[in-house]
Design a protein around this nucleic acid. Structure first.
Lengths: 149, 149
DNA sequence: GAAATTTTTTGGTGCAAGCCCAAATTTTGT
DNA sequence: ACAAAATTTGGGCTTGCACCAAAAAATTTC
C-alpha cells in the first residue's frame, strides 16, 4: 500500500508533534508500546497514550488498549509520505549552502506545513532523486508524474 | 535602520499570525488604525487590539491607545526580514515547478518556521537575487556575505 | 495462581495562541 | 454637547501539547 492509494490527503492533516509519533512508529516497524514511544519522544506516557488515541481515531493507527499500536494502511502510506517530504526538503536545502544537519533541523521545524502537492512538484523537478541527506528516498508516490506515463 | 542592526534575532520569534500583522502594518506605512488591520486580516477588532498590544510589548510596535500603531526601529528591521524571507523562499519554490501564486501560498504557510540563518544561506547561494515573484527583494541584510567583504 | 510490580490509561490541570461576543471606554463628527 | 463610531477590556471557547495523580490492566515473581 502506498501514497497513490490515498489521493485525498493534502499533507497538512497532522501537527508537527503527531508527525514525530508516526515517524517513530514507522521506524520501529511492527507493534509499538506506549513506553517505547514516550521515552523515544521524551514525553510523559500519559501524553503519549492520549496522542495515540487521537491518531487511532483519525485512522492512522490500530490501537489495542494496553497492548500497543501499529500503522494502518492509511498510516503506513501517510508516514511514507512524511518521510519522503522530510528527505526531499532536506536535500533541497543542502543545495543552498546548508549542511545536512542544518537542513534536517530546519526542515523538521517547517515540514508539517508543506503540502503534498508542493512536495510532488519539487520531487518531479529534481528528477525524483533516490538518495537524500538522511536516507533513501522511496518513490512511486508522486501523483503528478505517475499520472502521465 | 536595517536587519544588521539587530544581529540577535533568529527569525523564529513570531507566530504566523503575528507575521501577518507586521507585514500588513509595513505595507500601510505610517500610523495604522485597529479597524484597518482587523478588516484587512478579517479578524474581530478585539482580537486585533490584543495582538497589537502583544506586539507592542515585545518591542515591534509603538501603540498609542485609541490612536493606532506604527513600527519601532526593531519592528521595521524585523519586518524587512520577514518580507525578504517570504520573497526568497517564494522565488526558490518557483524554481521547482510551482507557479508564483502556489509558491506564495505555500511559503505563507511555513515561512514562520524558517530561520534567518537558513534564509541568509539560501540568499547567498542564489546570488542575492533582486527580484522575487512578489516584489523587489531588498538586500544589505544577509549577515553572512556582508561580513566577509 | 495469587500478590506485587510495571505499564497503560483516565481524569484533572495548565499554558500558549487564536478567535469571538458583549460591555465599557475613548474619540470623532454633527 | 450628544450621538455615532472606533477601540479596548473582560469573559469564554477551541486546539495542541504538556504534566501529575489515581485507576485499571498486564506482567512478573514467588
Amino acid at each position: 500500500m502506498n501514497e497513490q492509494s490515498y489521493p485525498e490527503f493534502t499533507g497538512l492533516e497532522l501537527s508537527p508533534r503527531k508527525i514525530d509519533y508516526l515517524k517513530f512508529i514507522l521506524e520501529k516497524d511492527g507493534t509499538v508500546k506506549t513506553t517505547e514511544i514516550s521515552s523515544g519522544l521524551q514525553v510523559d506516557p500519559s501524553t503519549t497514550s492520549k496522542t495515540l488515541n487521537e491518531l487511532a481515531s483519525a485512522g492512522y493507527l490500530n490501537h489495542i488498549p494496553y497492548r500497543g499500536v501499529d500503522l494502518t494502511e492509511l498510516g503506513e502510506a501517510y508516514t511514507q509520505f512524511l518521510v519522503r517530504r522530510h528527505r526531499i526538503l532536506s536535500l533541497l536545502l543542502t543545495h543552498y549552502g546548508l549542511s545536512p544537519e542544518e537542513a534536517c533541523d530546519e526542515v523538521s521545524r517547517f515540514e508539517a506545513f508543506v503540502s503534498r502537492d508542493a512536495v510532488d512538484k519539487i520531487c518531479s523537478s529534481m528528477g525524483h532523486p533516490m538518495f537524500g541527506v538522511c536516507g533513501e528516498i522511496s518513490h512511486g508516490k508522486c501523483l503528478h508524474e505517475e499520472n502521465h506515463h
